[in-house]
Nucleic acid binder design. Structure first.
Length: 856
RNA sequence: GCCGGGUUGGCGGAAUGGCAGACGCGAUGGUCUCAAACACCAUUGUCCGAAAGGGCGUGUGGGUUCGAAUCCCACACCCGGCACCA
């Protein structure tokens, strides 16, 4: 008989035939397969009615059940769900459904990250409003999630583009503004010429816009920033606590991104300038080798220092650098360039005058934007000195076989000071790098011309965007009062109604075109003022959404602190590595800032983070241009929800990529049919006591359930599925050629299978549960109770090794003594043969599993 | 260059100091069938052998250990993060 699971591609007459055959069979013997489509259609309305996954605040508050907060990254609504959503949802559901079965009250919410550029670009293309695109896609994705059997609590859903949500995004912005954690400054910023907006550092990848791939340039603009650097040290330190439960990859990425370095600030006096120039260096021990100073060409300092004579050359050079793209600037193998500014500084330890140059290899926004040039110890300085003909002094003795140019390794300090040089009261000669560092810092500190300091690569988060579809920044600019916060009771500042061509990128925010909206009176003085016309980076929306889920309908506050502190922090967060630094770092920053505002009692939002791999096809990322895309909807139609979910969970450990060309959803379906068939074979009545059942099968059932729990808690879902398959195989055997279908152990095993499968394949599990004579829903049936006594083996196989090779096996009692096991091993025929009369030097016995005989 | 992770059959992967290759995919042979599909059964790391049995085998080379895929050292390659960050 043909498989009955419906396959959309199937010819209709063929389908009729199979349907009628199924019908015939169910009247007579047991049907061999179930109809996937029919089962899906049957259970969805039942679950809608039962709402098994609705999280109840009271149950947790009263202490009746312990809480679990399970979060998975909410999607951006671009079209329908794709394979990646399918994977993360399937993995996430294993854990959340497991928690429900174990008796926890699980908060597992879902919503939409619905502000963002694709909707805006679509609106421009179609002369529409971004909301049309956004909310249409949300409806589609919502339906798909439901069909997918995802265990979300839909009563808590929201969209970040809803005014009821972004009202609180604005409210939180104002709290940070009050604390000085949100501020405006003018500085060179990353500019995407395609999207016509600024980008945060995190959104620039290899000099290109992370979103559209356009080459990023720099612009000098006044923009809003969040002071993430205020939390740099804490963001770094608390990674230590997260390390065991976050993936190494993400922790490492965050550490690298924060980029802490220890060094010193050193002051160089400049004749005729009141303030010295301070440089940042990680190698204060090399200060005697400082033969020049370099200042970032685009820093205000360079412009200020340059002499009239050098100004034309300087300005010409600066123009040249400004025209360069980030990509050109990032290439490290091009020759060093620069202009002598015509001024000199005093080396604080030698008293020598050194020239000050401007260059593009020094970054204006790192450290102080000025660097001491030590060509003997720094390769970049070496190259610069070589090109410009500046002197080179080595201050660390390189090893004899050293073949580089600048030497930056370990070694004794030399030339500090050089032979015959005037004494300056500091002598580093002969010291190790570490000792010389501290000695130099101590000396400078005493002189008042330097101090030890710590620097971070992390920059403040640039959050303003010159686009429409985001939360307006709730600030009013008043010629008298400056930046004035929109009063809380006037929130939300709603977006003006713009559409189509109004939204075209012009380099300034489209909101500026809505004159009625822009012109307001100042909340402080009542005079004419203008609204800020920028919108917030959408990462602001997602930096606090996990808090809103705890009290999603509260219209009096962003979140209810009691409920947030009760549910939070999230016990698990599942998502992709692409957000390893962006979203995860921002959310961590927000959580710490809100904790310090007294709004939260915890400082880390996500206690555990599981990063799921990608679904690829034929070794490559799925993409339209490669033509290797696989649609989730298509796979669901062909194999059914359960088989696709099972395939995604079973294919590999959650962190690894899944190559769709390597997996077999048809194999998954075959397995599910086998499992389902078991439920029709059971002949004992529901409620039959299992105690009298076949002991071997009972032991396997209990062992499987016990191990499955452990595997799930360790996020080893693929192995948990493998164990379930073994139980199905063993149960099949027991029915066909063992204890038979009427044995109570068979019922116990099949019920366990249904519950285990409810985590992965909810539809077929529900169907099995019903066929076993139970009421829905299997999702809340409860985890089977493991009988510890059944976990003890009657006998175990002991392995006997001779010369490290397995030469014999013995079935022994698990509590056999070492002496008995050794005696049995030495008496074993195969072992005796392998020994072949050789002298036994030593016998290692690890009862009851192993004996190793070492022969001389 | 610096930091992190990895490398196990034809393939996805199990095994985290004690039987390498669980489970599955694929493949081969068989049962059923007029035939095919479905389903079921068997075999499937590799080499020698008719078989019994044996040799070899977890990227490479060394080490620790009675015993190493697992721990240590070095190297190669792959993936990810940072990178003119001083």
């Amino acid at each position: 008989m043909r498989g009955v699971f419906s396959c959309h591609q199937q010819e209709s007459h063929e389908r009729e035939r199979t349907m009628s055959e199924t019908h015939e069979q169910t009247e007579g013997e047991q049907a061999a397969t179930y109809d996937v489509e029919a089962v899906q259609a049957k259970w969805q309305p039942v679950w809608d009615r039962l709402e098994p996954f609705r999280a109840d605040d009271e149950v947790v508050r009263s202490g009746e059940r312990e809480k679990r907060y399970a979060l998975t990254m909410f999607p951006y609504p671009s079209g329908d769900l794709h394979m990646g959503h399918g994977e993360v949802t399937a993995l996430h559901d294993v854990l959340t459904r497991y928690w429900w079965q174990r008796g926890y009250e699980v908060l597992n919410p879902m919503g939409w990250d619905s502000f963002g550029l694709p909707a805006e670009n679509a609106a421009i293309r179609n002369d529409a409003h971004p909301a049309d695109y956004t909310y249409g896609n949300i409806d589609t994705q919502f339906e798909s999630f439901r069909k997918y059997g995802a265990s979300f609590d839909w009563s808590r859903r929201f969209n970040t583009s809803d005014p009821e949500y972004y009202r609180w995004t604005q409210w939180l912005f104002l709290r940070l503004f009050e604390q000085g954690l949100a501020y405006r400054k003018k500085s060179p910023v990353n500019w995407c010429p395609n999207d016509q907006t600024v980008l945060a550092n995190e959104q620039v990848v290899d000099g290109a816009c992370e979103r559209c791939g356009a080459v990023v340039t720099k612009r000098e603009l006044t923009q809003w920033y969040f002071r993430t650097t205020a939390y740099a040290q804490e963001l770094l330190d608390s990674l230590d606590d997260l390390q065991p439960t976050w993936s190494d990859k993400v922790v490492n990425a965050q550490r690298n991104w924060i980029g802490r370095s220890e060094g010193a600030h050193v002051d160089f006096a400049v004749a005729g300038r009141e303030q010295p120039i301070t440089v940042y260096t990680t190698r204060p021990d090399t200060i005697f080798g400082t033969t020049f100073m370099v200042v970032a060409v685009d820093a205000a300092l360079a412009d200020e220092l340059v002499t009239d004579a050098q100004r034309p050359a300087f300005e010409a050079y600066r123009e040249e650098i400004r025209r360069e793209t980030e990509i050109e600037r990032l290439s490290t193998d091009r020759p060093k360039t620069g202009v002598d500014l015509g001024v000199t500084a005093t080396n604080p330890v030698t008293g020598e005058q050194i020239p000050i140059w401007a260059t593009d290899y020094v970054l204006a926004d790192y450290g102080t934007g000025a660097v001491m040039g030590v060509p003997g110890g720094d390769q970049r300085d070496f190259e610069f000195a070589t090109v410009m003909g500046l002197p080179i002094v080595r201050t660390t003795q390189p090893p004899a076989d050293f073949e580089g140019e600048a030497y930056s390794g370990e070694g004794a300090t030399i030339n500090s000071p050089a032979d015959g040089a005037a004494s300056v009261g500091l002598d580093l000669n002969g010291m190790s790098v570490a000792d010389a560092k501290s000695a130099a810092i101590a000396f400078l500190d005493e002189q008042g011309s330097g101090r030890g300091t710590v620097n971070f690569r992390l920059r403040d988060w640039l959050l303003s965007r010159q686009r429409y579809w985001g939360a307006p920044i709730p600030i009013i600019h008043c010629p008298v009062d400056g930046e004035v916060a929109v009063p809380d009771d006037q929130l939300p500042v709603e977006l003006p109604a713009l559409r189509g061509a109004d939204l075209k990128p012009k380099g300034v925010s489209p909101l500026g075109g809505a004159e009625e909206w822009v012109n307001v009176s100042c909340p402080t003085c009542g005079g004419p003022a203008k609204r800020d016309t920028d919108t917030m980076d959408t990462f602001v929306d997602s930096s606090w959404y996990f808090l809103r889920y705890c009290s999603p309908h509260d219209d009096s506050q962003a979140f209810d602190p009691d409920l947030v502190n009760m549910w939070g922090p999230c016990d698990i967060y599942i998502g992709g590595d692409e957000h390893a630094v962006l979203h995860l770092l921002y959310a961590r920053f927000f959580t710490k800032a809100l904790r310090d505002l007294g709004l939260l009692s915890f400082g880390e939002p996500f206690s555990a983070y599981l990063s799921q791999g990608k679904v690829i096809n034929n070794g490559r990322k799925m993409s339209k241009s490669l033509g290797n895309g696989v649609s989730l909807g298509g796979q669901l139609a062909e194999f059914g929800v359960d088989a696709v979910r099972l395939t995604l969970v079973f294919a590999s450990p959650p962190e690894d990529n899944i190559d769709w060309a390597d997996v077999s959803p048809s194999g998954s379906l075959k397995f599910l049919q086998r499992a389902w068939r078991l439920s029709g074979d059971v002949t004992s009545a529901p409620g039959t006591a299992p105690e009298a059942g076949d002991v071997a099968l009972r032991k396997l059932t209990h062992k499987t359930v016990h191990e499955a729990a452990d595997l799930i808690e360790k996020h080893r879902f693929n192995v948990m599925v493998a164990r379930t398959m073994e139980l199905v195989n063993a149960t099949r055997k027991a029915i066909d050629s063992g204890c038979g279908p009427a044995d109570p152990a068979v019922r116990e095993a099949v019920e366990a299978v249904a519950i285990l499968l409810s985590l992965v394949a909810p539809y077929v599990a529900e169907e099995m549960w019903e066929r076993l004579g139970h009421q829905p829903t299997v999702a809340r049936a409860g985890w089977p109770v493991v009988d510890e006594a059944l976990l003890v083996e009657d006998s175990v196989t002991a392995v006997v090794q001779v010369r490290g090779k397995v030469r014999g096996r013995l079935e022994v009692s698990p509590d056999i003594s070492e002496a008995d096991l050794e005696a049995a091993a030495l008496a074993d025929e195969a072992v005796v043969r392998a020994l072949d009369g050789a002298t036994i030097r030593k016998v290692i016995v690890k009862a009851p599993k192993l004996v190793n005989i070492v022969v001389g």
